[in-house]
Nucleic acid binder design. Structure first.
Lengths: 211, 211
DNA sequence: TAGATTGTTAATCGATTAACAATC
DNA sequence: TAGATTGTTAATCGATTAACAATC
């Protein structure tokens, strides 16, 4: 393992954008694409595209560009989406139920294998092809179904408790939608998404625009 | 208007985190908070907290810290959440229906005033206190209900078309959940959120952790 | 070959952190 | 007053961009 210079977090994000665009190009049966063209489609410079890719290897062909069908599996491998991930959704409110059924996840190799809630009124309800289970059953399910990711969709007050439960159950990855900063140990991975905050990024610009 | 040094985009995002944390502190009836403490709660340095705030003014009190009930309205004003925003949701699939009913938005001053879809089978359906309307009715609604924001929840293929329709209808702000890079004129504001990509940021780290 | 385009180094730009005088 | 903590400048760090030799 070489002493790897650190890869900017923003570069990882762009890798996903490249992959998304490449899959679009493949659907159009495009065979190659240059860094210039890829950048143009995503509002990035060609230098940025090449730099991001070379953090991980040499994927291009001088004078030619990048072969679409060659680069796609490479990016998938880097991003870890060349395999299946088993996911549980914790919290069966509006958002939890929607994400459980979201095709955007299922298409990308994420299997939603369980939906959990503490509310007795919700337990037993069917949501798509899932049935809401009790949080108490989480630990058993994680072992039985080899779960790697928990999507947290409970209210802010419950998020840390539910996260702790998920981690104790052996789930290493947390995708948090609750509007709270979670404390997780370094041996686990956490990504947070606060949709209201994202909307505030919009209103910040909008306020200036409309004033 | 002074020649304002540019504010990092990341700083705007953190402003929202400060606001969220301050509201939590206020619920606990805390009166003041220091930059050190605020940073600790959010995994940031105290210098970062102070720097971010001073992009917009002098809100603190030397020797004391920041008064919670004083800073909250200041941040709300900066972020544009000291007013109501009227929002329509375009696309009444799983995600669109969930976001239409999402309390996390409603609580923050976002009024969802319409839910639209092109599918005749969906038009007329009730979703919470909304009824799905035809996309054709969008333009009329925007004028009647003074809409500033459209949340795009249609499939990738339809997103640009629906966005163009929203912009033509006079909506200046686009919050896009479709997995596609939109083209919008500079006179409008756009924020994109690809949930599958966010999940890939998690699997990138997770792959390394589990290998 | 000539033209195109990568991979990579060096230069630039921007954001974060450290340090400390101001001051409550 | 002494202790705490801000606001701000300067130093550091990191990320982006420009430039170009390598090469298909």
């Amino acid at each position: 393992m070489s002493a790897r210079r650190p890869v900017p977090k923003a570069a990882i994000f762009r890798l996903s954008l490249y992959l998304r665009e490449l899959e679009r190009l493949r659907a159009e049966t495009r065979e190659t694409v240059s860094s210039r063209e890829l950048g143009r489609a995503l509002n990035l410079t060609d230098a940025q595209v090449r730099k991001d890719l070379t953090y991980f290897g040499q994927f291009g062909h001088r004078g030619v560009g990048y072969r679409v069908s060659e680069l796609i599996p490479q990016l998938r491998h880097i991003l870890g989406t060349d395999r299946k991930w088993n996911v549980v959704v914790l919290g069966a409110g509006n958002l939890g139920r929607a994400l459980s059924a979201y095709r955007g996840f299922r298409n990308q190799g994420f299997n939603i294998v369980g939906l959990f809630d503490n509310d007795p009124a919700k337990i037993g309800q069917d949501v798509g092809d899932l049935t809401v289970e009790s949080m108490d059953a989480l630990s058993t399910t994680v072992q039985a179904r080899d779960v790697q990711i928990a999507i947290i969709c409970v209210p802010a007050e419950a998020a840390q408790t539910v996260t702790d439960l998920a981690l104790r159950s052996g789930i290493p990855g947390i995708f948090n939608f609750a509007p709270v900063t979670l404390e997780v140990p370094g041996s686990t991975v956490e990504v947070s998404e606060d949709l209201a905050i994202r909307l505030e990024q919009l209103t910040f610009d909008l306020s200036k625009l409309l004033s």
